[in-house]
Design a binder for these strands. Sequence first.
RNA 1: GCCCCCUUAGCUCAGUGGACUAGAGCGGGUGCCUUCUAAGCACUAGGUCGCAGGUUCGAAUCCUGCAGGGGGCGCCA
Length: 517
Amino acid sequence: MTSLNGWPAGADLPAVLVERTQNPAHGDYSVTLPLKLARTLRRPPMAIASELIAAMALAPSFGRTSVAAPGFINITLEPAWLQAQLGPIADAGPSWGRSELGRASPVQVEFVSSNPTGPMLFSHARGAVVGDVVARVLVAAGFSVQREYYVNDQGKQIRLFGESIRARMLNEPIPEGGYGGDYIAEIATQAVAAGVPPEINELASFGIRWVLKDIKQDLDRLGVQHDHWFYESTLYEGLHEEVLKRLEALGRIVKEEGATWFKSDTDKNDVLIRRDGYPTYFASDIFYHVDKLQRRNFDRVVDVWGADHQGQIGRLKEAIGVLGIEPSRLVVLLVQLVSVKRGQETVRMSRRAGVGISLTEMLDEVGPDALRYFFLLRSADAQMEFDVELARRQSGENPVYYAQYAHARLANVLKLGAKADGEAALDRLSSEWELALMRVMLRWPDVVREAAEAMEPHRLAFFTDELAAAIHRFYKNCRVVTEDATLTAARLLLSRAARVTIANALGLMGVQAPDRM
RNA sequence: GCCCCCUUAGCUCAGUGGACUAGAGCGGGUGCCUUCUAAGCACUAGGUCGCAGGUUCGAAUCCUGCAGGGGGCGCCA
């Protein structure tokens, strides 16, 4: 690099990016540095490229470099190098694709956190899947991850919840704005059976336990587990006063109209403690994030929220910033709304629309694998339409089966070839389908790393789809178990490596990888 | 009025600075089961990348403006 002619002293060198080519005809990787340097150097990019290529000194067994107009350096991996990766991939098994990128940095992912005043709705499921897979990907990238569920177990809504149960118990009318679902009657019945007195607090906590058990069942079926259930009420065992005092000392507290307000640098203050004495969700959110980011001191906290909470991000970040917490340590992933398509009818699932399809019902109808895979086929920040009929179809039209079938085919081949012995002639894995499959497989560690960095779990699903396509093409065109012992052994090794890769990909998404279908 | 997300093939969506022919799935059309599972493969039709400017050697991708859809802007949760 130092030999680059004409590079001005002290000028910053652009980052050397090695990128994936989009067109296989251009090789596997490309470097666009020559194009970026051309302006500063005031020399033709092609000449710079030639000069750089000479300095790169790539091991000939790894790949070939070439220069392409208007100034790309392309790198094409050698088949021998690709073939040599198969053994290590197959042997790595579940650890293939994992990395130490995160250096065990403690990160918390908080997700689902739906209120314990009722069962989970389908509209909660997308956040559950996105949060779970973000957590899985972060683990795979070497972060030390805690998954937390925040339980809103106190406040005005909980009181209403307790009152609603009591009303049901005593056959009184449901209070204004109270809860009226069938599950309230069920809770009331069970409370009577358990001898719980008709006292609001006791009924509310009984009801919360009942609902949380119900939520956990749904989450279990979805394949989602939390490490820690954090109760909002614990914020009010002293932390709330401490934080309010600190805000007061910082001159951020205003009392007006009987309420306590947070004094913002924006033109709009927000209520912390309402006139009726109940803290707002904003207040609890501040206490909660102080607990997470200062008390418990996670390096980073990821909150998975529905898009309808978008308006709260700014003020929460301002408040924690005032309290001395670097706001970028809090990452809020907004999950956009889902609409449900049944036949010709489309129903939007927004909180305010109050449309409630229960998660239990959807799990019964389409099953966890299709549910998860469908959510992961969309980026979280795009609104999506969930086609129930497509998701429940047990055929190739359903993308989840396409991927699972690829895994099952490999599993079957490996079973048939289990007894085969012979020296694997790796150099015979030279057809376009075999080489293409290897190239796709080798992207897996990059996919995991990129998904973790961007916190974009949908990248896994798109990769899986491509990998499954490469597997199906290989399977179609290259018979694995034959009389030819050395070729059979080589293809079995390729199959093992491919199976490891697709199993890991499905595994990170929490989708089953069946051996038979 | 202000803030956030979206606008790419008939439908649902990837791609968010790079390369000739902008991709996938579904849906449409045509082939392929005497060979390890056809829940598969191959071929084909289908696109002014919302519109208009700008930056750049290069823009679906970045900037500005406009239009359309959704969400939010509460002492609701």
